[in-house]
Amino acid sequence: MSQRIIVNSNINGENIEFMADERDSLLEALRDRIGLTGVKEGCNNGNCGACAVIMDGRLVNSCCVMAAECQDASITTVEGLEKDGQLTTLQQTFLEDAALQCGICTPGFLVAATALLEFNPHPTEHEIRFWLAGNLCRCTGYDKIIRAVQHAAERA
């Protein structure tokens, strides 16, 4: 039998103490222990990016991080992107540009694109495609996602 552990993290700006199974990934802890189900599981081995979160300023796949590693970490999920109840520019351009169809990959793309624009506010199309190559979308063919990121960068 595995052990339960207590972890203290700052999640979406809020200090949260949660109990996790020592085998829990950050993805499992976020979804099943904390209830942040906006973080999606697509593959559980780092290939699809649906579970992307920003951890201490770095874009990570939360399925590849153990919950136990998150003591004192600062984590942003899709639920934490809004500021004061307002959608971010990226969230807005994703809506306007129809950059989602089924929407299951959208949280990961938004988090990854947010990290991209913080790191590189004016990326080229190739830089956007390179950065987002870790996120799989099966509905859109990526065209409208790339354009939504371009439009968000233009508005910044």
């Binding site: 942040l36 906006g38 999920t77 899709v78 959608l87 969230q91 989602l100 959208t106």
Partner: peptide
């Protein structure tokens, strides 16, 4: 769907 509120099948608890 851009805020993580949409409930998909695996989000049922």
């Amino acid at each position: 769907k851009v805020t993580g509120r949409a409930d998909y099948g695996a989000d049922v608890h």
